[in-house]
Design a protein around this nucleic acid. Structure first.
Lengths: 101, 101
DNA sequence: CTTGCATTTAGACATTTTCCTATTTAGGAA
DNA sequence: TTCCTAAATAGGAAAATGTCTAAATGCAAG
């Protein structure tokens, strides 16, 4: 299992994630925003998928990718916890699945 | 300027940061916790420094490294903002340097 | 000024990553 | 089936990374 940290280390992958923040989309839709060959995008997506940072869903001919925000946030907040009280609180909330008023 | 994301992509560097969370320390102190040659530790520290994630301060013969928590948190929260309302709030606070009651 | 310790720099090497083009797989439609 | 499009895989070249040992630098104490 490859780490989320490695996955977000590459700038193109962070840009892909930012794009996906706007909602689920197909590989071609993503690729059209980059000056990179489609197979390269496909590879980046597979790295993100390995890291559990995106989900994929076949829809006929297309494959639709979407963000796995929970995994993204859990990985990073988990790491930030030792460095920040805010992260500590949020991380705990996320684990409990609760939210204080 | 090399990115904080690349800096935290390597596991040994994340471990170094976690160690430094316990307080400032010298290179040898850090190195003693790892099964890695000192020059390698030194290299990792210089990557962390380039990324603005640690500070160094010469103290006689020794060089003392400490965490630059602000930069660490700003970089990561900035990235998380589009994916999470909590991060959004905290990121804004951090930018203003204020804290709502 | 020489010696010794802490740290960095240099150089080499193996591994990994990133990108490309060409090919293959999978599905939909004629 | 045959043709077209979407996406993944294969294979390879170039660049970046991580680690080591050996050598250099910086500082302090005799």
């Amino acid at each position: 299992m490859s780490s989320a940290f490695k996955a977000i280390a590459a700038e193109p992958r962070r840009r892909i994630l930012n794009h996906l923040a706007g909602g689920p989309m197909t590989v071609s839709e993503i690729a059209s925003h980059f000056e990179m060959a489609t197979p390269s995008i496909s590879k980046h997506l597979s790295v993100l998928k390995e890291a559990g940072l995106v989900h994929e869903q076949r829809r006929g001919q297309f494959i639709i990718y979407s963000i796995a925000a929970d995994n993204l946030l859990n990985s990073l907040y988990g790491f930030l916890t030792p460095f920040c009280p805010h992260a500590r609180k949020i991380s705990a909330q996320r684990k409990r699945g609760t939210k204080p008023k």
